[in-house]
Amino acid sequence: MDAWIWWLIAAVGLGIPLVITAMPEFGMLAVGAVAGAVTAGLGGGMVAQVLVFAVVSTALILVVQPVARRSRRQNPKLSSGIDALRGRQATVLERVDGQGGRIKLAGEVWSARALDSGEVYEPGSLVDVVEIDGATAVVMG
């Protein structure tokens, strides 16, 4: 059997743990094995094949890992769902106090209650959404 076939078998063999463990290093080694297969297919000797495998795998690990670590540490910039509503301003439609009321938030009518039970917000005033508790926006002035 030709050497390039063995390299492709090795690439598939390294791809299996990548899928099972989700460790990207296996994927980088698999790409190195594909590079070794290409080298073998172009007529490179065994030493050249192993060197290409080692260089490509090492380069990928050294370049990709720091980038992946950096992106993992960053918080997502886009909020969605109720997370996107926190901190937004809303307009009071019906008097809001510690017991309840109604606001217009992001184009929709929401039930609301004041964060401080002693506060009262009259219709037309602007409030800030502190949190979403179930289907109720908790607001403050």
Results as ranks from 00 to 15, higher is better:
A22L: 12
N75V: 02
L60T: 00
L85R: 12
V38F: 07
D116Q: 13
A40R: 07
A106W: 07
V55K: 09
S117R: 10
E108A: 15
G124A: 12
L18N: 06
S125F: 08
E94N: 11
P24W: 00
F53Y: 11
L105R: 07
V127F: 07
I61N: 02
V56W: 00
V127K: 13
V63K: 00
I16V: 14
D133M: 02
G81H: 13
R102H: 14
Q65I: 04
G32P: 02
D128E: 14
V34D: 00
V130M: 13
G98P: 05
A40C: 11
T91A: 14
G107W: 01
G44E: 06
E25K: 00
V47T: 10
P17A: 05
G98Y: 10
L18K: 06
Q49H: 05
R113V: 03
T136R: 14
Y121I: 02
V96A: 15
S80Y: 05
L18I: 03
A114K: 12
L62Y: 04
V47Y: 03
L105C: 13
A135H: 14
G107L: 05
R73L: 02
A106S: 15
G32A: 07
D83Q: 15
G36N: 04
A90G: 06
V129W: 06
L85A: 12
V63L: 11
D133Y: 01
A37W: 05
A114V: 11
V92Y: 11
A84M: 12
A106L: 11
G101T: 05
A33R: 04
E25T: 00
L78I: 12
A114C: 11
V47Q: 10
V120W: 05
I61W: 03
G101E: 01
R73S: 07
V47S: 09
A48M: 10
L62C: 08
M23L: 02
I103T: 05
V34E: 00
V92Q: 10
S57K: 07
I16C: 04
R113P: 09
G81R: 15
A135G: 15
T136I: 13
T136L: 06
L78P: 06
R72Q: 03
G41R: 06
S79N: 14
V127P: 11
A84D: 13
F53W: 12
G15M: 03
V34I: 10
V38E: 01
L105A: 08
V109G: 08
A84I: 03
D83T: 06
